[in-house]
């Protein structure tokens, strides 16, 4: 029901951030999250960041899928 798109914070100006989604830039409000900094990935919904993407968990999830699929190589942060 709720489209949320991961994008990278390029810069922060007060409570607004410029967020890069595949090269399209949108101003996203930061009222709903704490401790965001440039470089962070956030999930944006309806013009607001609702979550900071947890990079460690992202890697763990992918590794878990790889484990199920029997692939041994680790999915590291280098992607």
């Amino acid at each position: 029901m709720c489209i949320g798109i991961p994008g990278r914070i390029i810069k922060i100006d007060g409570r607004m951030a410029t967020v890069d989604v595949g090269g399209a830039m949108r101003n996203i409000a930061l009222d709903l999250i704490e401790d965001a900094s440039p470089g962070d990935y956030i999930i944006a919904h309806a013009g607001f960041a609702i979550h900071k993407v947890d990079e460690e968990e992202a890697i763990k999830t992918l590794n878990m899928i790889r484990e199920i699929t029997g692939s041994v190589e680790d999915y590291d942060a280098a992607f």
Binding site: I3, I5, G7, D20, V21, G22, G23, A24, R26, A44
Partner: peptide
């Protein structure tokens, strides 16, 4: 599909 077109499409659904 060019990357920014994809990105903008994702943003707007």
């Amino acid at each position: 599909v060019r990357e920014p077109v994809r990105g903008a499409c994702e943003i707007l659904g």
